[in-house]
Design a protein around this nucleic acid. Structure first.
Lengths: 346, 346
DNA sequence: GTGAAAGCGCTAACAT
DNA sequence: ATGTTAGCGCTTTCAC
């Protein structure tokens, strides 16, 4: 009956504390604490006795109590879009690095609204995380700076630069250039870009960089007059809506660069329904190189931005910050064009 | 210079504590605490003064300190497979319910190994979460019971029943029956099932229920002799491997029930590469009704298990548990067959 | 190298 | 209704 889940010794029903461990080992709590967190300045004998006690009592440090004075060994991740398959890669990359350093990962899902994201970030700070990874935050630079001042922070996405936090991002402008260069080489001139609309004051977003890269590359190819922004949203539905507009327009673009795979899939969906042949009548390009786009019957031409590697780097940067580095680092990964079958010669 | 991020008054550089609030409002910490957590037994006047003080000092309760004595107002979710798009629905459903009740959600990603999952669960407990949602745990019933004894727990998946925790799951056996009934009605007899292999002692898994449902339904249709389990794994690669085996076998099955969309997509991929016509030469069915499968060029026949609703229910059950309910509840949602174009008449 | 004691911010139990 | 106080489990001075 006496429910004693983890504690074979000590008071039944309650888990062992460091006091129990210390008493069991016949040492002071301070020493037990040192051993528990692997601090220096403990004799061999002490270490062994305490470790034995911890094992005997199946002691696990209470992370909250720990965090009250020291660190929680926990990293918080703010996620702006849980549906985005890209972040799975990212999290896996981070987990690998953090696990081997005894850090834990806790993910807080937010919506895409700035208010919600700020609330989530605050809460992560309230949880006394040792560091934060912000995935595609919509907060302004200034707010990010304030966060960076309070707690080691890595932003995933084209933000900064700021002394207060690190960033890791893909070179989205270069990615867009890859797309336009390729389409131009295939003879396309009327290349439309599906723009993800956002508040004008947010300038450091992937959508901004991709739009800029598109515009500049078009310019470079002497296609400045052909630059066409289709205002919309990077979602499946947004892609469908954009496709409808494209298909009705005259002269009709020969290619649509959708800016994100999820939107490109929407464009494709609308085309399939309208019996528009791909790529004969319209070339379609996405961004993200998602699993779905890679499937044979879809075969979406896209841009790969190595999410796993981003996760690894984000985790490494964060650990460095936690350990004291104070100069900012801004890592930029080079994207790669993956040509498949939704694009062709004009 | 003096970095005072959140505290316009009080000691600069440090965030306001409840002591600061109490002092500012000229009341006791206990009263301030009561107001902070909306407890009863405070006068109108007191409430207003404390609230003004909290606003003036931009006070936010420190969740760790809170958790040391009372509750953290935080729910932990153990996620066994972060790549599974299904869980996005689930998390969104949970968030809706929890947000309006002032609870927060923190997700801890685990791998599919039992060891890793147990470590993650322990850690969630160490973080003093108010409740746990375990998504597809591979832990044995007995271990789940122990967890349920320690902390309010809801398991998502066909576990239990147990007095110690609640469950919410799809009726996977019925889902399989829908699939087999439909295929049989279309004239199929040689219907193979792709089995997800797992340790024999784990019996309460979706894969088990789906396998059982398949077998019983086959039996019911007088097709017991045609029951064929293809041992493998529910992953893209697992699906491809299974498809290769199916295509080589003789007599070749006319339909493959892959048990999960991700595996079905693997089966399809291998078929496309081998120029096997779908559904003329082979019918393929998945489970999950994933976004990807629904795309026009894929049009995978699948089973829908309403992830969003599962999330809502999981959150509701958990809150009830936290608030004191001690009888177990086991909610079972009825799945729905979604017929698309990867299945046809023999 | 080891131990005693203070205290992190909060809430619960107990006065008043 | 409000205030006082003890203490959650841990780490961290600061003695020895």
């Amino acid at each position: 009956m006496a429910g004693e889940p983890t504690t074979p010794a000590g008071r039944p029903g309650k888990r062992a504390t460091i006091v129990d461990v210390a008493r069991y080992a016949g040492v002071s709590t301070a020493s037990a604490s040192k051993v528990a967190r692997g601090a220096s300045g403990v004799s061999r004998d002490m270490r062994e006795r305490v470790e034995a006690a911890m094992a005997a009592l199946s002691y696990r440090p209470h992370r909250l109590a720990r965090g009250m004075r020291g660190s929680t060994f926990t990293i918080g991740v703010m996620l702006s879009d849980i549906e985005n398959p890209f972040f799975g890669l990212l999290v896996n990359g981070m987990s690998e690095v953090l696990a081997e350093q005894k850090y834990e990962l806790l993910i807080a899902p937010a919506s895409s609204s700035e208010t919600s994201q700020n609330a989530i970030i605050d809460s992560l700070i309230d949880h006394q995380m040792d560091g934060l990874v912000l995935f595609g935050p919509r907060s302004g630079e200034q707010h990010l700076e304030e966060i960076g001042k309070q707690i080691p922070t890595v932003v995933v996405g084209p933000h900064g630069p700021s002394r207060q936090y690190d960033t890791v991002s893909g070179d989205d402008e270069a990615g867009s250039a890859l797309v336009v260069d390729y389409l131009a080489a295939m003879g396309h001139r009327r290349i439309a870009f599906l723009a993800n609309e956002h508040p004008a004051d947010l300038v450091n977003l992937p959508e901004e960089a991709r739009a800029r890269g598109y515009e500049r590359a078009m310019d470079r190819h002497g296609l400045a007059d052909e630059v066409t922004f289709i205002p919309g949203e990077w979602s499946h539905e947004g892609g469908r809506a954009a496709a409808r507009r494209v298909l009705e327009s005259f002269p009709r673009p020969t290619a649509v660069y959708a800016g994100a795979d999820v939107a490109a899939l929407g464009v494709l969906a609308a085309c399939w329904e309208a019996d528009v042949r791909i790529p004969e009548e319209l070339s379609v390009v996405g961004y993200d190189n998602s699993f779905t786009g890679a499937l044979t019957p879809i075969s979406l031409t896209s841009v790969d931005q190595s999410g796993h590697e981003m996760g690894v780097i984000a985790a490494q940067l964060l650990l460095e910050r936690i350990r004291g580095r104070s100069e900012a680092r801004n890592e930029v990964l080079t994207p790669r064009l993956v040509v498949r079958r939704t694009t062709g010669r004009v």
